[in-house]
Nucleic acid binder design. Structure first.
Lengths: 328, 328
DNA sequence: CTGAAAGCGCTAACAG
DNA sequence: CTGTTAGCGCTTTCAG
């Protein structure tokens, strides 16, 4: 900006006013400064600009990691942002899967105030529920219910998935859970247990594992479940990525899917369909959810009336990873 | 930070030193300040921090829009960032499909210096080739070849795709091109023309259209090609999203795919496989390309030796959208 | 209408 | 070892 001011022979204050379309600058000067700006290819520094003014015109999508789940949400948010006056910035820490719990608070305080005017946080793990800027959560932690939230109906979805397995004739069914504390994870387990109970089938402790929604963390519990004395004939995994890992583990153990083991996932991320054994799964409308969250955020910032708690339905997508059990 | 300083009874300078692990602070004070920071949940503002220091510890991925192509690249970059000491931020302007040419320069000058230490820019449209911070381009504009670049071998890919159609028996083949000026687009058209010439089949002007790689822009040219007096029996579209649009247009015109019309795309984004008529397409290793670009960027910033021009191979993925022509 | 000056949150000299 | 001072690029009073 200093360059522009010097070249145009005016003060930086004047340039600033031209950039921000403030009035109080003569048409001639305005014109001239605009020209210089164009010539020099100047763009205001987002950091400095919002540091000073407290507004950035940017909305953030905070994720732990860019994996299929969050990028689907991002596509939805990216489509939705076009209808607003904001730009969209997606941010992931470096932690990756080994995220500190509470990463969302860290990221948020790092970015809020100087970089983003509001944020959509994806599967936040902390219990916090009040932040410096407007926030909408997607699939949050259990205690966070006071935040405006978009989620899917995990409980009903889990019941449906379990019933699908049951209706195929399975009785020895395992469950690979998600991440401790996330509401979706708790609900999916509850749905599984209730559906089993309703069918009068008992659940065995040795058929339970926790994969944290992550492929790497799913190997050990999947292996343990599948190598138990009398292994299950089917497994319901709490998300697609861990379901895929279950299949990998099963095959490395010499089992065929779906002949020896049926597997059903949750989410319906693209990877589920693309996997070499197309995965039967409970679909969440992820892009739609991302778009809804972004619109909620926009509404909240603008002070518009808005729903604060959206629960989307799921539906069963039948592909190739499930079959009736072959042995009793 | 002022809060922290006040609560801890020290100056902001001291807090800053503690935050940045500078030495010259007594262990006791350091300990105490750390405690206060933890209690207050303080995180340094990224904007202010990098405004002052000129470093942010963040790498950017600049895209015109979050669509399947760029999000695949983003997944790769997200995986690669974990091996570096940087965090990753993805940024899309609000322009969407109606981006001003030159959006990458705008975004870059807005973010560089105060927010990111380097950037991967996806399908930049401008001719510029020198920026304030290190930059790696993915699939750039024709004139931008002086930038470190990652791309795929579009020419060979286009030849392969065209030959596939030819080998199926097609002779009346249309071509729906990409975006003016992008090197990939030019190469795909050249590959198509050369393959046709090599087979001794001539190309008809009325079978050519330009879809800008975008679904919305593909409707009109696709309609025009398919309603020409003697329509083609096959179309090669320069990317998957426009190929999918071609199929939509064809069906709305009463044509069946692949019976009446074969369609082959390019990219192999997840959507290609998920489309109701799974798309035959030329696959690019998108995630790998995103990861490579990020590593190149990291190397360049660190002053490490690195390749500056990577061209990845493509391969044909046969799905359901192509068949031999039924009528002569 | 225009510019000088103060200050956003932070870091980098430099004194003490 | 610690605090004071200056200033990153920008916006915003406030005088002129």
């Amino acid at each position: 900006m200093a360059d522009v001011a010097r070249t145009a022979g005016v003060s930086v204050a004047t340039v600033s006013k031209v950039v921000n379309n403030k009035d109080g600058i003569s048409p001639a000067r305005t014109q001239h400064v605009r020209q210089v700006i164009a010539d020099l290819g100047y763009e205001a520094s987002l950091g400095a600009q919002s540091l000073r003014s407290g507004k950035s015109g940017v909305l953030g999508m905070l994720v732990a990691e860019f994996e299929p789940f969050s990028t689907e949400l991002l596509k939805g948010a990216g489509a939705a942002i076009k209808k607003t006056d904001y730009e969209l910035l997606a941010y992931s820490g470096k932690g990756g899967s080994a995220q500190t719990p509470d990463w969302e608070r860290k990221h948020l305080s790092r970015l809020s105030g100087t970089l983003i005017d509001g944020a959509v946080i994806v599967t936040p793990t902390g219990g916090e529920s009040s932040f410096a800027i407007p926030v909408v959560a997607i699939d949050p932690h259990l205690g966070t219910s006071s935040l405006p939230t978009v989620r899917c109906d995990s409980y009903t979805g889990a019941v449906t998935a379990t019933n699908h397995l049951l209706s195929l004739g399975h009785r020895r069914i395992g469950f690979l859970g998600g991440r401790q504390g996330l509401q979706s994870s708790t609900e999916r387990e509850a749905g599984f247990r209730d559906a089993m109970a309703a069918a009068g089938v008992d659940v065995r402790p040795e058929y339970f594992g926790e994969g944290g929604y992550q492929p790497e963390l799913s190997i050990e519990p999947a292996t343990r479940i599948l190598t138990s004395p009398q292994p299950p004939t089917a497994i319901f995994a709490a998300n697609d990525l861990s379901a895929i890992q279950v299949i990998n583990v099963a095959e490395s153990l010499g089992l065929s899917v779906p002949e020896d083991l049926s597997v059903v996932g949750f989410d319906n991320v693209p990877d589920a369909a693309l996997f070499r054994i197309p995965l039967t799964t409970m679909a969440q409308p992820l892009q739609e959810m991302g778009a809804l969250a972004l619109h909620m955020l926009d509404d909240i910032i603008a002070g518009r009336e808005t729903v604060t708690n959206i629960i989307m339905p799921t539906h069963l997508v039948v592909r190739a990873s499930c079959a009736p059990p072959t042995s009793p």
